[in-house]
């Protein structure tokens, strides 16, 4: 177990190095630079040069890369071009909001998506299965911004039940009022992300459930006279969950990226929104930091998923 974990972490670190390197160079391959974007009739070339120097952009690119790596090892992601604040600080301010959103969405995926998948599998071929299948296919193909705007229109504008954006109403309140306010603001963005992602969970659960229900040991369980629910929950579901867990684990990584659109539409102050704003300002350091977080979350989720699967399926022997 220890050796396996060590191996996975080393592999993860290597992946991380490759990904930050690619990010670093891709950002700098963009035409123009953060200073020329700020060009303005009011600002002379001397001031622009001073800005380039301040940003460290006057140095050759490989030197910038070395400086960046050195900083990275020390946990220093540099200063944001936009507002001169440490990138780490900027990201840490936004990260909890994204994590909160992802936490809510994943919990809902499990408690809503899995039972629906199971239901579809049990009622395979019946009307309810068909309805679930069709809804899920619609869900998978729906354009996320369209969905988000529809929710906004219905719940925020038409019914006036929920706020249109942000994570809370400024100024933030205290105690319970604040949490309720945040919960209210979180409903629409989480619903959007839930709809966009629930299809995979339902379909994977359904398909693996169908496969498992054909297995000999399930027939044996029925033959023993066990109750239907007991068989489904104890014998079948645990095994059927393996592909579902894998999918959710892999999805979390892409969900952070996919949150760019949802967070932007709902003015949710998370990492996705930060990426959107920073691209517009060509804020390299913040983008590097945000992509680093994305890479870390994907790698971490992969490791965690492997561990959970090993726990679910004793046949997979870690480090074996």
């Amino acid at each position: 177990m220890g050796r396996y974990l060590m191996y996975r972490i080393l592999k993860g670190l290597l992946t991380l190095l490759v990904s930050v390197t690619i990010t670093f160079f891709i950002l700098r391959l963009m035409p123009a630079d953060p200073v020329s974007i700020l060009i303005d009739p009011k600002m002379g070339p001397e001031v622009q040069q001073a800005m380039m120097k301040r940003f460290g952009l006057d140095k050759p690119i490989w030197e910038q890369y070395i400086i960046f790596l050195k900083g990275l090892i020390k946990g220093d992601l540099g200063l944001s071009f936009k507002n001169q604040r440490p990138v780490m600080e900027v990201i840490m301010e936004k990260l909890p909001w994204t994590l909160l959103l992802l936490f809510i969405v994943n919990i809902m995926l499990l408690i809503i998506g899995v039972p629906i998948g199971v239901l579809a599998a049990i009622k395979r071929g019946q009307l309810i299965d068909k309805v679930i299948n069709i809804s899920v296919v619609i869900g998978i193909s729906i354009f996320v911004p369209f969905l988000a705007f529809s929710f906004l229109y219905i719940f925020a504008y038409y019914l006036k039940l929920l706020p249109t954006g942000g994570a809370y109403t400024p100024p933030p309140g205290d105690g319970l009022a604040y949490y309720m306010d945040v919960a209210k603001h979180a409903i629409l963005p989480s619903l959007t992300l839930l709809f966009a992602n629930i299809a995979s969970v339902v379909l994977y659960t359904r398909n693996s459930m169908i496969d498992i229900l054909k297995e000999d040991y399930i027939r044996t369980a029925y033959a023993k006279g066990l109750k239907n629910n007991y068989i489904i929950q104890i014998h079948a579901l645990k095994n059927a969950m393996i592909p579902t867990v894998t999918v959710i684990g892999l999805m979390i990584g892409s969900m952070v990226g996919g949150a760019v659109m949802t967070e932007t539409i709902f003015s949710w102050p998370g990492i996705g929104r930060l990426i959107y704003d920073s691209v517009a300002a060509m804020d390299y350091p913040v983008l590097q930091g945000a992509f680093l977080i994305l890479a870390i979350s994907v790698i971490l989720m992969n490791i965690i998923t492997d561990l959970i699967i090993a726990w679910l399926d004793p046949r997979i022997k870690i480090g074996g």
Binding site: F149, L152, A156, Y157, K160, P163, T164, G165, T264, I265, F266, S267, R273, Y276, D277
Partner: peptide, 14 residues
């Protein structure tokens, strides 16, 4: 702070 004009408009109408 709003990300774009649509979000701002909706918040105004709301």
């Amino acid at each position: 702070v709003f990300p774009d004009h649509n979000a701002l408009l909706l918040a105004m109408k709301n």
